[in-house]
Design a protein around this nucleic acid. Sequence first.
DNA 1: TTGCTCCTCACGTCACGTGAGGTGGC
DNA 2: TTGCTCCTCACGTCACGTGAGGTGGC
Lengths: 274, 274
Amino acid sequence: MNAERTYGTAAFAALAGVTPRALRHYDRLGLLRPTRSSTGYRRYRERDLETLEEIVALKFIGLPLKQIAAIRRRPERPFAQVLRAQREALEVRRRVLTRAVEAIAAAEVRLGSTEGRSADAIRRIIEVMHVEQNQERLIDTYTTALKTMASRLAAMSTGERATLRQEWAALVEDVRAALGEDPRRPRAQSLLDRWLSLQQAIAGGRETAAAVSATELRAELWARRADWLPPDAARTAEDLSDASEALAHVRALAASFAGDDVLAFIGRAKAARE
Amino acid sequence: MNAERTYGTAAFAALAGVTPRALRHYDRLGLLRPTRSSTGYRRYRERDLETLEEIVALKFIGLPLKQIAAIRRRPERPFAQVLRAQREALEVRRRVLTRAVEAIAAAEVRLGSTEGRSADAIRRIIEVMHVEQNQERLIDTYTTALKTMASRLAAMSTGERATLRQEWAALVEDVRAALGEDPRRPRAQSLLDRWLSLQQAIAGGRETAAAVSATELRAELWARRADWLPPDAARTAEDLSDASEALAHVRALAASFAGDDVLAFIGRAKAARE
DNA sequence: TTGCTCCTCACGTCACGTGAGGTGGC
DNA sequence: TTGCTCCTCACGTCACGTGAGGTGGC
């Protein structure tokens, strides 16, 4: 009595919408071990179906079976972290696919117009591919720079941040007042010194600073911000590894950078120095 | 004299941005065979770079190496077909990724609110996954039905199509005039006969007809049309395997279907018949 | 002569698909 | 007793990554 309903491999596979071979695979990996009949046949129970559905769901979001096994045993990382990392990985793959589709579309246009030859179309793919790879590299550089700045700012005390902000505002004001001056004069050169040391304080290493100060780079990136700026501010703050305060600083920084006249003056002072 | 500049494996790999191992792989597959020095070392020439760039470009758009080899030998299918098939395949993969990202996002929301447990989040993934799979199935069914209709219409003569259109318009008008009548009466039943036979003429098999006549299906699909209707009409016409005329017929058909009162009457007549 | 580069196997990756060859169950 | 289902190997997939073990080149 109370004999529980069980299923053979094929029946259970059909019930769950997977193949029998997949069930054997999960069994071998230890993901889902059914009981065995006296003759060695696999016997699945009703409650195995819940387990299998979980496995299929985690596979649907692209997790490898090994990681699924780890999560089901006991997650070594909090599930929220797993989900976030996986979502970001999928978003990267989706962007790659988008680039490829764009390259194909460009090649199709080339092929359709004025009896294009396939060699021309392939060349077009190469062009689009290179342009897009450069953009990816710019985005990576800039995103890394932003994260570096955010974490440095987050590591400072409130007082330090306030000081920095004041110094920065003062410097920008002083530069504005000196815009017409000769960039070779000591006055301009001393403004440049202040600029470089503030940049060093916020951005740290030289590469970060360089990435942040390239004007064309920022223009290009801003034009394509939909590609790298997450849609909602909450997520952005999280990405930058700390709180909205750090993000606010980065924004203030970006805003202060936005004055092209100021940047041009600093550029002239740099050019005069060498 | 005139000794051409050549490169060793590592140098050529660095020049082209691939790994030495990849070059050996392409060599073995016959994709790019360099000359060999007397001691068996691979020697790449300047013009091998063009070949390699083509290979990398075709790999970038997701073609497998075997197919790239075939294309470079001599394309057995026109390149336009290859590009289109590849673009469509990538678009499908992109949609799958979009679904997965959506499912993860839903799970993250669940996890964030009111101390969600990971089991709840996984259940949420399952829900979203099932909803989306149903939608995919609907879209497939409907798209197939549309293609079937388009090819049947394309196979007809202009005269036959004109007749069909007239009969259809006349039927819709007659049904409108009979909306208030008893669906069990011979009048309504004869309208239903005309409806079924016209549907048979356009849609062919019973499954196609069923797909086309399910009201909720069309409402659901129309709400999500961005997912399955290609953005530009030109491409749509091509998808439907013949010209804008066939497409125009499908559109006219869809428009005539759109009257919910007409559909409801036919539905009542069908219900009365059994 | 000593590093350095290059060479050729050959296994591993990931989630199964696909036979091959054999045995218990209704 | 005859099909039918199930079982366990074990190779194949795809584009290389990663040693292992060995030899020519500057």
